[in-house]
Design a binder for these strands. Structure first.
Lengths: 215, 215
DNA sequence: CCCATGTTGTGAAAGCTTTCACAACCAATT
DNA sequence: AATTGGTTGTGAAAGCTTTCACAACATGGG
């Protein structure tokens, strides 16, 4: 039984990976999977797989492994991807537009319900079937539409203001694409998707071969 | 003096953050900055800032702090953002197109030189001034054009094949947007930008308030 | 020159994550 | 029923990262 313990960021990320692997295994009609197999699929160690899963319960059978379908469903439940989430997207620029069309999101139950921008030329117009609203009314509209997750895809200068408005609407899950460190109060979950940072990481590895992990 | 020690992923990521803060401080005409100030700007601890920097040398002066301009330049050097990098982008779909227009990249010295796709309707056409090439010739063209970093933005089914072709061209830095775990040989640096995974992390936090960090 | 104030650089301690190792268990076979 | 081969769940060990704490140094003022 999962004791009341904090789960580490890395464990949660790996859960996503197990989930993806299990969805595939289920499609391929596998009945059971061992920690060894699951580890090989995701380039991890069997011990890590078992330890990760053990935080949430005992899902396997000694000698046999884990039942694929059942484990998949259990992890879906833990990750919250067995339900739909109402998502809003702020900033319909290059990246914002791309995200609206990104199939992976809605396939996983993340439904983009509202779009916002501050450009008068865009406001009121239709983007892939969704009307673009004025970011000036962000807080109120998020509340009115029961939005649970907001994606920020605005320029860095405006990101903190937008973020504050989101927090005011009692939304407690934010995915931020702006290359800036947002400040959020305790209780709000913030994830950052910072492409410039990832490229810098790569250029670091190119320059510092010897010091770089996986170098 | 930086001893021959592996630098952790997190230290490298924080270097990017220090760099961003220092660029801003320099713009605002600050001469020096203390680890305390830098820490406050990036929501970290002063000790962490000092420890991170100490891996690469002694850049500060006791009693005074760090010289902003100088430290910024030193970190730029360490991160490899004091030079230009030749980047190729594979997959000109929603996300790929957005990345071509993403200003932050070229501002930081990452120059997108080549575009690739497998769609005959796109191949040969011009996208933002760059001709789209046939992914069938990927390996050869990467070699011919001295590409140092490749961004993968193709559907997950094709990602590993594309990745293998990249590796064949002796490119050792890959940024992957496909929601799949790519296998690369030792010596190749791979960073993943997995948006579905970040959303799943957020939904985990929404469902498991108590277990989630920053919950 | 000496003292008060401020800040770095770093060894050591604390805390966290991963790996190890093995008892406990399951199934199949004889 | 006993043996063999396989796999989980988990406490303990190892390894890694962050925080602490303080000597070493810089500056400014008396």
């Amino acid at each position: 039984m999962g004791k009341l313990k904090r789960i580490s960021e890395s464990t949660i990320s790996r859960l996503s990976r197990y989930y993806r692997a299990l969805v595939q295994l289920d499609k391929d009609n596998y009945e059971t999977v061992s920690s060894k197999d699951l580890a090989r699929l995701e380039h991890l160690t069997p011990a890590q797989v078992r330890k990760d899963l053990s935080f949430f319960g005992s899902f396997g059978t000694r000698g046999l492994g884990y039942p694929v379908r059942e484990l998949k469903d259990k992890i879906a439940r833990i990750l919250g991807v067995d339900q739909e989430w109402n998502v809003a997207l702020v900033g319909i620029g290059n990246i914002g537009s791309a995200l609206v069309s990104y199939k992976e999101f809605s396939r996983q139950g993340f439904k983009i319900k509202l779009l916002f921008d501050n450009d008068q030329r865009k406001i009121g117009s239709n983007h892939k079937g969704i009307v673009i609203r004025d970011v000036a009314n962000l807080t109120q509209e998020l509340k009115d539409n029961n939005i649970e997750i907001v994606v920020i895809a605005v320029p860095p200068q405006q990101a903190q203001t937008v973020c504050d408005d989101i927090v005011k609407a009692d939304v407690s899950a934010i995915l931020n694409f702006a290359p800036i460190n947002l400040k959020v109060p305790k209780g709000v979950s913030l994830r950052n998707e910072n492409m410039a940072m990832e490229l810098e990481h790569l250029s670091f590895c190119l320059v510092n071969n010897d010091y770089c992990e996986e170098g």
